[in-house]
Design a protein around this nucleic acid. Structure first.
Length: 571
RNA sequence: CGGGGCGUAGCGCAGCCCGGUAGCGCACUGCGUUCGGGACGCAGGGGUCGAAGGUUCAAAUCCUUUCGCCCCGACCA
């Protein structure tokens, strides 16, 4: 490829819209361009990266015994109504009508479509197990798309769906996918970790997320440093404390706390630690309102609350509801004397003594409140996010926290979809059985973006060799005949050696070419200048280390292959 | 959906308060010089000032409406 014939619009300055490293660098290096919020065009070089990731995925999926097919982007409402997700999925499902006023949606995922295919085409246990996958553009109408390819509305995803005759078979498929994902992300040159996860809108019994560890990640992961436990905080189980405070119970009293609504304000005003406060959160479930008590230094986990209540709708109650129930403005709710709502509490609350709670009166809090003596709780449960310092639920050490980018997710679905859609087969006894399913996703663009988050410096991207848009960036300096001749020769010999080469044949100055090359981030640069030709040696620059090696032109292809196989950029 | 901010040339921005000729840097075109880490000179091209309505002799600038985008939050794979 020659730069002069390629649309490769590099930007010298950072686009104003971009915040994160990957978003900024992918725009600057001419890989993507925005068409609308969360919707991007992949420019030629960007598409090459996408294809590289896709091909790695394809190879590993095929190796794991999955077969590729391709489902439509648009799917009819009927299928979604069968599983109830037409309503359940909410606004994220982009719906539209065709010319006959029939309801359709853009597929955000394809359980319905694949299950429909299965029930039509598969009859016998002899045909199982099956695992289908596709690499396809999805659409989810995100509330807030951001960070470029990291969280788009339209995005490329590999999704796979397995069908088994029983749980044991499904577990085997799950394990195969789990292993394949390890190979895929390793081959992409990523540092990642598989963690236990919540199943969200997809549903099912268990799941793991594959998290690329990066400071800009949107997810928080906790893991045991000394053990094997790792989980998304929204999922991580928190063990009840084993012992509590032994303080003498002090008498209850009300104090004035003018304008102190938040934990920070109240603890600051009263000069106490956040752990000495219990916050009372009022949630509306759509049907009624519940109060949730959480220690001041903990974070409520709405997923756990939802699961305990068995509801899908849950949001913090509005000011009107809060005032109706507590008789006070938002910020002063407390469990003492609270009536008319169920009171749930995190386990930690049971082990506190002499805490500060809201007074259910404007500008008032209650000091030295105590569970049982001053307020009751209907149910204690694990209702908070895990955090660094908590003991691991596997009792294998203390948890640490880190940020992660979710690039893959595997789910055990069980029979949730096969039951809803009656996807069954006949077993050896002629008995009708429901297929046991699993589903497995990988965000392709997000994986590429995560690779940038993990592999860059202040000059630009440093692509891992297996997903680099090209292997070698060939940089002729100046217009002299010897340089032109040597460059043309190298262009041929590098390609002969099986390397992908981008030839910067623009009439640009050396500095411009060097800076663009560093920005674009091919693992190797080959620099052809009169200076080097005079001594018969040209330079190979290793992007990752900045190291420059000299080699005779004829030796360069072999040298690069050797570096790629063994060097720091090999991955 | 709540809070904040921004839409002026391809990109990054100034001008807006205080109405009166639309500007700067980069990029782009031509010529010349230069040529191993984002050169220089000369000459050029390019803008319905997001859109619609209003106020005014006159609107990028003031007012109203609207659309888009970004950030924080809520929410979400």
């Amino acid at each position: 490829m020659r730069t002069s014939q390629l649309l490769l619009p590099t930007l010298r300055e950072d686009p104003g819209e971009a915040e994160t490293v990957s978003h900024r660098l992918m725009l600057r290096s001419g890989l993507i361009r925005k068409v609308a919020a969360g919707i991007y065009t992949y420019l030629p070089l960007g598409l090459r990266i996408i294809r590289k990731v896709e091909n790695i995925i394809r190879e590993e999926m095929n190796r794991a015994g999955a077969q590729e097919l391709l489902m439509p982007v648009a799917s009819p409402a009927e299928l979604w109504k069968e599983t109830g997700r037409w309503n359940f999925y909410g606004k994220e499902l982009l719906r539209f009508k065709d010319r006959h006023e029939r309801d359709f949606c853009l597929g955000p995922t394809h359980e319905e479509v694949i299950t429909d295919l299965f029930r039509r085409e598969v009859r016998s246990y002899r045909q199982l197990p099956l695992n289908f996958y596709q690499i396809q553009t999805k659409f989810r109408d995100e509330i807030r798309p951001r960070f470029g390819l990291m969280r788009g509305r339209e995005f490329i995803m590999k999704d796979a769906y397995s069908f088994d005759k029983d749980e044991a078979g499904a577990r085997l498929n799950y394990q195969k996918m789990y292993d394949a994902y390890h190979r895929i992300f390793s081959r992409c040159g990523l540092t990642f970790r598989a963690v236990e996860a919540d199943t969200g809108l997809i549903g099912g019994s268990s799941s793991h997320e594959f998290m690329v560890l990066a400071a800009t990640g949107e997810e928080t992961v906790v893991y045991s440093e000394t053990g094997t436990y790792a989980a998304n905080v929204e999922r991580a189980e928190v063990l009840p404390p084993t012992e509590g405070s032994r303080e003498e119970l002090r008498p209850l009293r009300a104090v004035s706390t003018p304008n102190c609504r938040t934990v920070e304000e109240v603890t600051g005003f009263l000069k106490i630690e956040p752990g000495r406060l219990v916050k009372t959160l009022l949630y509306s479930t759509g049907k009624d309102t519940v109060a949730v008590l959480i220690r001041g230094d903990h974070e409520a986990n709405e997923i756990k609350i939802r699961r305990l209540l068995g509801v899908t709708d849950l949001e913090l109650a509005g000011p009107a509801t809060v005032e109706k129930i507590t008789g006070a403005p938002v910020g002063f709710a407390g469990p003492v004397g609270l009536k008319g709502v169920r009171i749930l509490a995190d386990h930690a609350v049971r082990f506190t003594r002499n805490v500060v709670v809201g007074g259910n009166r404007a500008d008032t809090h209650i000091v030295d409140a105590n569970y049982e003596r001053d307020f009751q709780v209907d149910e204690f449960a694990d209702l908070r996010n895990a955090m660094a310092g908590d003991p691991s639920p596997r009792k294998d050490g203390i948890l640490k926290a880190t940020k992660g980018i979710e690039v893959g997710h595997v789910f055990m679905l069980g029979t949730k979809y096969s039951q809803a859609m009656n996807a069954s087969f006949l077993d050896p006894n002629g008995k009708e059985c429901l297929a046991v399913m699993g589903c497995y996703g990988i965000g392709v663009g997000r994986t590429a973006a995560a690779a940038v988050e993990q592999n860059h410096d202040d000059k630009g991207i440093i692509w891992p060799f297996p997903i680099a848009p090209v292997h070698v960036h060939l940089l002729p300096l100046g217009q002299s005949a010897p340089v032109a001749e040597a460059t043309a020769g190298l262009y041929g010999s590098l390609q002969q050696a099986g390397l992908e080469v981008l030839w910067d044949d623009r009439e640009e100055r050396a500095g411009v070419k060097f800076n663009d090359a560093d920005l674009i981030g091919a693992p190797f640069q080959v620099i052809v200048g009169d200076k080097g030709l005079a001594e018969g040696l040209l330079e190979i620059k290793i992007r990752k280390t900045g190291e420059k090696l000299k080699a005779a032109p004829a030796d360069i292809p072999a040298k690069i292959l050797q570096l790629a196989a063994s060097g720091p950029s090999s991955q």
